[in-house]
């Protein structure tokens, strides 16, 4: 069997809802059926074959070839298999993802990995706002799994994140880890203004001091935290993050946000 490959025929002005394309939803479907699969393009339903050229026959291994930022909800709700995007992706990439592997070679839009509960989401380019965050109407962001971003992210990465791990190799925008409930977020570049605003619990690990912290964070001093050895060692097989363990386990620690529980921690390697 060979990977099921979807190549976008031409750029679309309208947004296309790609949520039907997950390994489990396409399981047991023949290529002739997949071609007929209706997809929402704007406010109209269009047959998949009219938007994409399709080849291959393994729905457990899906490859999407597109440079469009209009393909939304790729991998939404997927629980197994793998999807690889050669190019860019739109909004809500991997939304409510419950397992499997989702990767993108380029940039992605807003709210990638929002509400995901398991699996691995790898973004080689940049990510938009609300990475692993909670979208409007949801009370929790990411609830499990792992997100790796090789580039930069927009604002509010990890907003209301409840569990799981986000690794950002580049810079994070403003309000990083805002309203964070729990989980672990690592930024190897620079984090923006008001980092950790309204953070309740959870760990934000930074390689350098953020642009600014809310006034409601308290200095907790410098500490050797043993768990960091385990944490950084667990990323040894992740390209781009494999040498994190060399930074050691000594960190400057801030506790906050004291405006709401104050049990979150922002750690900066010394």
């Amino acid at each position: 069997m060979s990977a099921l490959i979807l190549r976008l025929r031409q750029s679309s002005h309208q947004r296309i809802d790609m949520s039907p394309f997950t390994p489990e939803r396409l399981a047991d479907m023949k290529l002739s059926d997949i071609v007929q699969l209706p997809l929402w393009q704007g406010n109209q339903q269009v047959a998949c074959g009219d938007l994409f050229t399709l080849s291959g026959d393994d729905p457990q291994d899906i490859v999407i070839q597109s440079d469009s930022d209009r393909l939304d909800e790729i991998g939404s709700g997927m629980t197994n298999g793998s999807i690889h995007i050669e190019g860019c992706a739109g909004a809500y990439l991997g939304r409510s993802m419950g397992g499997g592997s989702l990767s993108v070679s380029g940039d992605v839009g807003i709210a990638a990995g929002c509400n995901m509960s398991a699996g691995t989401l790898t973004i080689a380019g940049n990510a938009g706002d609300l990475l692993g965050g909670a979208i409007t109407g949801e009370r929790q962001g990411m609830r499990g799994g792992k997100i790796l971003v090789k580039g930069n992210t927009g604002d509010r990465a990890g907003d209301q994140m409840r569990r799981g791990t986000i690794l950002i190799s580049g810079n994070a925008g403003d309000y990083c880890a805002s309203r964070m409930i729990a989980g672990t977020l690592v930024v190897l570049g620079e984090a923006g203004a008001k980092t950790g605003l309204a953070m309740r619990r959870g760990t934000l690990l930074l390689s350098q001091e953020p642009v600014s912290l809310p006034a409601t964070f308290n200095d907790n001093g410098k500490h050797n935290l043993n768990f960091l050895t385990l944490l950084t060692r667990s990323f040894q097989d992740q390209a781009g993050f494999s040498d994190m363990w060399e930074r050691g386990s000594r960190v400057q620690r801030w506790l906050g946000d004291l405006g709401c529980d104050g049990k979150g921690e922002i750690l900066v390697w010394c």
Partner: peptide, 24 residues
């Protein structure tokens, strides 16, 4: 109530604040 849970590589750990630092 000051203990912190951490999920690392599929296992759950507890970080308990103690007088010499943290008990993992």
């Amino acid at each position: 109530g000051y203990q912190i849970a951490k999920q690392i590589a599929g296992s759950r750990y507890w970080r308990v604040p103690v007088m010499d630092g943290e008990f993992l």
